[in-house]
């Protein structure tokens, strides 16, 4: 298991959320949690827009579009 950021996970991959970056402002952290980005949840990268645009993630049984800058706060584990 290696840690990486959700923003760096390739399209099509399914990863497990390990944590939200502790450096992130508490309110933003809470909001990400309320959107479903909770440690232990699985998240699938459904598709990415070109030119570092936003990506669509499947989390908690729904599709959510999130920008790279915010997906970078989500720390995920990937199988080696």
């Amino acid at each position: 298991m290696a840690m990486t950021r959700l923003a760096d996970v390739r399209s099509g991959a399914v990863v497990r959320i390990e944590a939200i970056d502790p450096e992130v402002a508490p309110l933003l952290r809470l909001r990400l949690t309320h959107l479903g980005f909770r440690p232990g949840e699985q998240v699938a990268v459904v598709r990415r827009a070109p030119f570092s645009g936003p990506a669509v993630y499947r989390i908690c049984d729904y599709d959510l579009c999130l920008r790279q800058e915010h997906a970078a706060h989500v720390i995920v584990g990937v199988e080696q």
Binding site: L28, R31, L35, P54, Y62, L64, C65, L66, R67, H70
Partner: peptide, 10 residues
């Protein structure tokens, strides 16, 4: 502004 841009794709 703190509010991030996120959008549900129903």
């Amino acid at each position: 502004e703190l509010v991030p841009f996120y959008l549900e794709m129903p």
